[in-house]
Amino acid sequence: MTPLLEPGHTVRVRDDWPEAHGPVHLRTPHYLRGVSGRVERYLGSFPNPEDLAFGRTPRPVQLYHVAFEAGAIWPEVAEGGLLVEIYGHWLEPSP
């Protein structure tokens, strides 16, 4: 599977809250929803855990290591960063 996003791509984690509408299994931390970051590395294709958790046939999803500035997440933090695995279907172009 060819990665859709290249290292250096600026992306935003979708500001989506499916847990508000019913039972779900998510691997996208809530503190990153709506936050912009930069693709660091493509980590490969994996069966979607959102499907696996409910015994559904999983579709393959692309996994990326995405770097975030800590200051973009926590207002009181001036320095440092985070590196988090985010699935491609949770990423959208950064506005």
């Binding site: 931390p29 980590l43 994996f46 855990p49 440092g80 960063g81 985070l82 590196l83 695995e85 985010i86």
Partner: peptide, 10 residues
Amino acid sequence: PIRVVDSTAD
């Protein structure tokens, strides 16, 4: 600099 790696997926 500190970089926190949140291990959330595969």
